[in-house]
Design a protein around this nucleic acid. Sequence first.
DNA 1: TGTATTCTAGTGGTCAGACCATAGAAAGCT
DNA 2: AGCTTTCTATGGTCTGACCACTAGAATACA
Lengths: 255, 255
Amino acid sequence: MPSEKRDSSESDRTRQVVNHIRALLEKGALRPGDRIPPERELARELGISRASLRTGIGYLVAMGVMKVRHGVGTFIEDGPAEFNKSSLGLMGALHGFQFWQMFEARLIIEGSLAALAAERGKDEHHVALAEQVAEMFSIANNPEDFLKHDVIFHRIIAQASGNPILAALIETINSAMYEKRRKTVKRATYLRHMAEMHREIFRAIRARDAAEARKQMEEHLRVAEDAQKAEPRRPLPPGSFQQDGEKKLAAAHSD
Amino acid sequence: MPSEKRDSSESDRTRQVVNHIRALLEKGALRPGDRIPPERELARELGISRASLRTGIGYLVAMGVMKVRHGVGTFIEDGPAEFNKSSLGLMGALHGFQFWQMFEARLIIEGSLAALAAERGKDEHHVALAEQVAEMFSIANNPEDFLKHDVIFHRIIAQASGNPILAALIETINSAMYEKRRKTVKRATYLRHMAEMHREIFRAIRARDAAEARKQMEEHLRVAEDAQKAEPRRPLPPGSFQQDGEKKLAAAHSD
DNA sequence: TGTATTCTAGTGGTCAGACCATAGAAAGCT
DNA sequence: AGCTTTCTATGGTCTGACCACTAGAATACA
């Protein structure tokens, strides 16, 4: 008999819970924002202990599919698609990610996202982008607020690209970088320049000029990276990535 | 006082466990493949119940940082960096990912990966790639084995790119597609053509021709996608993605 | 002596039930 | 009405017992 593919990382009960939820999601019986039944009740329905149910829920929470609110209930995540915020940080700790690599990944993905958005963006996206750009200009002296609109601007582009998978990936990366960006932008004196760059990106997207959109986005991100680099080098805060770390090729051949 | 950023998805005990492991990873006291102490023992050390410890471990397992082997022990994951295999599938069920979107993401990321590999690849990578290509030619009539070398080939390129973050992302995507590819390749009669395409990619990388490497890779993936599409359309197997699904813009504006 | 079988210690998986902590709703007070 | 207190529902944690799996040791067999 051909043995079934088993992801040995999940035990039977956990798998049972995950499949149950997945089935409900695929059937459309469960949608973002919905609440699932109380643990005691759902455990009884599934015929498993509450502890096992909680293991399965924890698994789904860790993957960014569900969210638990103590004293309130357990819900299907309803924000933009992304992997769990801390996942990249943990993987960084394990595999020695470095910051320039995050910027590189961001440059590649967001560049393509901008190009796709130029090709596929609808009017509603153009409107939303224009609004964010306008906001950036109007409050160009409040770094905190500025960053907020910056994040939304990029998120709309991801949305406009029509590829939610790439959107989820970049959302994960940006989440991991958010704290650092927040500190950087705080002392930024170039917010107006930033706003102008965003406007250029927007114009290219609205003009459906994919190549230009990519170019502007890449330039924008390079400037952002340089600004980051210019930051005073403080000792590594807890949870940051390593400064260096060569990896061996060995693992690549694992069967 | 500025309130601390709290990821409300993790309770205190879970956080405690995750931070403990993270700290050990960052300190280098824990490396890929290492085993952590037995649950009963570690729980006592941390001063928490075994149940809580297990919650934390489950969290780390779900994020692909650890792996549990029943009856043996709990280990730090030692394979290539990637998010949990089922994460993309779950997110797909939740956000309606489609297959063409996976191919598109793959095209973009692997194209860039090939270009980076051309720029940064070392001799050892060239050697390893050549070996895989040779294997592909030699066993071009055994689809199962062929796919194995195909996977390794792409993994080496990711490694050679020098960006483990992008490598982890593509590894996650490829994992999610593996089962489907396995079925496709089974009836493939064009394996020799595939091998030739891989050889072209390899040559471009060895010649350090980034543009050509990207071009060849993209062409290769387009052919692979067409082969996939030519597959007989069977009813959606459990765990697959939806056929269609427009998303609203609303979520993008969430604060 | 070498091999197959059985046993056993170690370790993760599940269960049951109790009690704690939190958030929101309801009731009571002024 | 508006504030405070209490109650209720729901998730969080603990304890300790028992089940299930794995690997290696001990044993039996040839």
